[in-house]
Design a protein around this nucleic acid. Structure first.
Lengths: 159, 159
DNA sequence: TTCTATATGATAATTATTTTCATTTAGGTT
DNA sequence: AACCTAAATGAAAATAATTATCATATAGAA
């Protein structure tokens, strides 16, 4: 079963990776479900189209896609990792995440994104110059409770 | 062996938690080593002063301290969690982290911290108002390579 | 000192991820 | 179109951080 991995085939081959049905299946899942999927979820969805795929292949594929910058890894602190197409490749623009620590829901936001990008750029430049770091990416998350969980948890009562 | 858990004894008892030698040992470790320790590391250090302590108690104590806002949990993506006294309780002021994905080193930074706090406050207010979130904390991290790892990894050559 | 809810530690269980390894395959070469 | 080999695969085992269990011990109020 030969596949070409859609728009990413060229990129993969260029970097020495082969286009396989498993990799194509993972990419298709990420394209058609743009919401922060875990490897297990990606595996479950991909299995419908390509039942031979193994969970290990999903993990390995995601690792490669992250390395190539096609996919971004996201960790919200619940012990499992999540993945989404990076802003250059998906249909999303630069955004960050709000995480509800009550129910685990993740919402994108991009309010004040221009100011944010400007400040981030400034900080990155400073860190690179003053401390000799090579910044590759940043993580910005807001954590708290969504409306429903706030009510459910007693409206902010302590402990 | 009765302990009072130093400056935190009152706070703990007030919230219905007892002051135990294990909890005191964990707090002492966090006070005297302000650098992003994992539960295993905290356990190893605490064991020197109080050998009877168990790793489970370290985990449980950290959970409580986070809940009380005394300690902050930090995850840099290497699969283990780290803890530090929160800015209100330790000797550190508001800061964020640079993480070297090569060697795992974590460095605090607080460049442009005033601008950062201003922007964060603005974003939080907006998210709370427009989306009805209750923001409790945020995570800001810069990831990349420190000087040494950059050289070691071939100065940014791809793959 | 007594008493009881809370805390503890040893151990087992859980869960996400990684490793191993024998087998298969993508894709360049003949 | 058949061949060849490094790369990829899947099943299963291994790993590692964290959490649950449970019988025992203890903090701290009465």
């Amino acid at each position: 079963m030969k596949r070409n991995c859609g728009q990413w085939g060229h990129r993969l081959r260029q970097c020495g990776y082969k286009c396989t049905p498993g990799r194509e299946a993972v990419l298709e899942v990420l394209e058609s479900n743009d919401e922060h999927l875990s490897p297990e979820e990606i595996y479950a969805i991909a299995s419908k189209e390509y039942p031979e795929i193994g969970l290990t292949t999903v993990y390995r594929t995601l690792e490669i896609l992250v390395r190539l910058g096609i996919v971004v890894k996201l960790e919200i602190g619940d012990g499992k990792s999540r993945y989404e197409l990076s802003e250059n490749h998906g249909n999303k623009t630069h955004h960050h995440h709000f995480v509800c620590d009550g129910c685990g829901r993740i919402e994108d936001y991009s309010d004040f994104i221009d100011e944010e990008i400007e400040l981030i750029t400034k900080i990155e430049k400073t860190l690179e110059k003053k401390r000799n770091f090579k910044i590759e990416h940043h993580i910005i998350q807001f954590h708290g409770l969504c409306g429903g969980c706030y009510v459910k948890n007693g409206r902010g009562k302590k402990i």
